[in-house]
């Protein structure tokens, strides 16, 4: 459990960090370290250099940007859980973040680190996808914004190019929507076998719009388009919702692993999507 040797730098500016990362493709970014350190200790990663973003100003904190809430990449899970802006406008994110690991991890781990690690078993990527978040990125070529639908490319792989740093996540405010994150894990601190991030908008007792993101149902987080379509216009009632949720796994290609086989994951996704939507819809 001793990591291999590596260089460690703690640049003071974003430009400096980008410079180091652009010059060395085997360098790794350190945010909260809750994913990177285990990889290092298992010697599953052997970066030449670890670039600690912790000293760079402006990467941490939550800001109101009108139609969006901007969450700095180095904002810790603990801060997300307790932030009033997030509570007011992006409650689904706070609720899902509350289920991440344990308090120690939530005090260290960051939203940016969790997104950039892009573990499909992580709770936050599915939320970002369901909420159609945007990922703000700075690299050698300047700044750009990547929509969530394009950010998660493959298992542990994002659209971040070499030398690019994720600086913030912009989350559209879904005021007036209701939501629920349903996590199914074997122990309190274990990864989700399946997680469902659901948000619905109701008008006059009907669901007019729904968003569903699935955790650990493929190599990337999955947007459950079929369920979203099936929900449109249905009564916000349990029977109708559970019927709509029967297509929850249509877009998924879940893995079979130690914690669950694919057929069971598909079944769980259907059951849990129904429950998440029903909870979100208050039915």
């Amino acid at each position: 459990m001793i990591p291999p040797r590596f260089d460690y730098t703690r640049p003071a500016t974003l430009a400096e960090a980008v410079g180091i990362l652009a010059a060395d493709e085997d360098a790794k970014v350190l945010a909260g370290g809750q994913s990177l350190l285990p990889l290092l200790r298992f010697r599953l990663a052997s970066p030449t250099s670890v670039v600690d973003l912790g000293a760079i100003a402006g990467l941490r904190g939550v800001a109101d940007e009108g139609g969006h809430v901007r969450v700095g990449a180095l904002t810790t899970h603990y801060e997300v859980v307790n932030d009033p802006l997030i509570a007011a406008h992006c409650g689904l994110l706070a609720q899902a973040t509350r289920t991440v690991a344990d308090p120690a991890v939530r005090h260290r781990g960051t939203i940016g680190g969790s997104m950039a690690h892009a573990d499909p078993a992580g709770d936050l990527p599915a939320v970002a996808l369901a909420l159609a978040a945007e990922f703000l990125v700075t690299g050698p070529g300047g700044d750009r914004s990547v929509p969530a639908a394009e950010f998660f490319v493959d298992y542990l792989t994002t659209a971040l190019e070499p030398g690019e740093v994720l600086t913030a996540i912009r989350i559209p405010k879904l005021d007036g929507w209701s939501f629920h994150y349903e996590k199914f894990s074997r122990t309190a601190q274990a990864w989700a076998i399946v997680g469902v991030a659901a948000a619905v908008r109701r008008v006059n007792g009907d669901i007019t719009e729904a968003r569903v993101g699935l955790t650990n149902m493929g190599t990337t987080p999955v947007r459950a388009d079929s369920v979203e379509s099936a929900c449109r216009g249905i009564p916000a009632q349990a029977d109708a919702i559970h019927e709509a949720a029967r297509s929850a796994d249509a877009e998924a290609d879940p893995p079979s692993d130690l914690s669950a086989q694919a057929d069971y994951r598909r079944h769980l996704a259907r059951v849990l999507t129904g429950r998440a939507l029903a909870r979100a819809a208050g039915s």
Binding site: F42, R186, T187, A188, Q189, A190, W191, L258, S259
Partner: peptide, 24 residues
């Protein structure tokens, strides 16, 4: 404790070998 078909222990970390905590 689970071994795969080649005889490797696949539950070699606490992420795979689930020790319950007080929360469970």
């Amino acid at each position: 404790a689970v071994y795969d078909t080649e005889g490797n222990l696949v539950t070699s970390t606490m992420a795979d070998y689930l020790l319950p905590s007080a929360a469970d």
